[in-house]
Simulated assay, not measured.
Amino acid sequence: MDRLDRAAERLAQALALVGALGVVALLVHVAADVALRNLLARPIPATNEIVSRYYMVAMAFLPLAWVERRGGMVRVELIDAALSPGLKRLSELAVAALTLAIYLTLAWVSSEHALKQWNVGAFVDVLGRRVIVWPTFFLPAAGFFLAALVVAQRILALLSGRSLP
C-alpha cells in the first residue's frame, strides 16, 4: 500500500505541476499578446481561443487529483464532532463512495463527449484559420478519472483501517 500511496502522491504532484505550468504559459502568452498588440499592432492570432480552451481547461481539471489528495474539496463537518470514531469512519466511507461514483460518472460522460469531438475533428475558426480544439475535451475526463483514483485509494485506506494522508 505504501507504493500505491507514493505513486498517488507523485501523480497528484505532477498534475498540480502541469496546472501550475498552465498558469505560467497563460501569463506568458497573454503578456506577449498584449505587448505585440500594443507595440507592433500585431496580436497573436487565436489567443482568446487558446487561453479559454487549452490553458483554463487544463488549470481547472488536471489538478483535481492533487486537491482531492490534500483534502481541499468542500467539506461539511456539521455533526462529525458528535460521531463516535466508528460512525465517523463510516460517514467518511459513505462520502468517499458517493464522491467516487460522481467522479467516475463525470469521467465517463466527459470521455464519451471527448471521443465524439475527436471523431469529428473539432476545431474553431479564427480569421480563416482552423484551431484544433478536440484534444482539450480529454482534459476534464483525465482530471475526473485521476481524482476518482485518489478517492478509490482513500476508500481502500478507510477499509483497511489506515489513517488518511
Score class of each variant (00 low, 15 high):
A8S: 14
A8W: 00
E9R: 01
R10D: 12
L11E: 13
L11C: 10
A12D: 04
Q13R: 08
Q13L: 14
Q13S: 15
Q13W: 09
A14D: 07
A14T: 07
L15S: 00
L15H: 07
A16F: 06
A16M: 10
L17V: 11
L17K: 09
L17E: 11
L17T: 11
V18M: 09
V18H: 01
G19Y: 05
G19D: 03
A20Y: 05
A20K: 07
L21K: 09
L21F: 10
L21N: 12
V23A: 13
V23W: 08
V23K: 06
V23D: 11
V23T: 13
V24G: 06
V24M: 12
A25K: 01
A25W: 04
L26H: 15
L26W: 12
H29G: 02
H29L: 08
H29V: 04
V30R: 02
A31S: 14
A31H: 06
A31V: 06
V34K: 06
V34T: 08
V34D: 09
A35T: 13
A35Q: 09
L36M: 14
L36F: 12
L36G: 13
L36W: 11
R37P: 07
R37N: 15
R37A: 15
R37Q: 13
N38V: 13
L39Y: 09
L39T: 09
L40K: 04
L40Y: 10
L40H: 15
A41I: 08
A41H: 13
A41R: 04
P43L: 03
I44D: 01
I44P: 06
I44E: 02
I44G: 00
I44T: 03
P45D: 04
P45K: 00
A46Y: 01
A46F: 00
A46W: 00
T47P: 01
T47V: 01
N48W: 09
N48K: 14
N48Q: 13
E49Y: 08
E49C: 05
E49M: 00
I50K: 04
V51Q: 02
V51M: 00
V51R: 03
V51T: 06
S52T: 15
S52E: 05
S52M: 13
R53K: 15
R53T: 11
R53N: 15
Y54V: 07
Y54R: 11
Y54F: 10
Y55F: 13
Y55A: 02
Y55S: 05
Y55G: 00
M56S: 08
M56N: 06
M56D: 03
V57W: 03
V57C: 03
A58Q: 07
A58N: 07
A58P: 08
A58M: 11
M59F: 06
M59D: 02
M59E: 06
M59I: 08
F61I: 02
L62I: 12
P63H: 01
P63V: 04
P63Q: 01
L64S: 00
W66C: 01
W66I: 02
W66R: 00
V67G: 04
V67Q: 05
E68R: 00
E68C: 03
R69T: 10
R69D: 12
R69W: 05
G72V: 03
M73E: 15
M73Q: 13
M73D: 15
M73N: 15
V74H: 04
V74S: 07
R75V: 15
R75G: 03
R75H: 13
V76W: 12
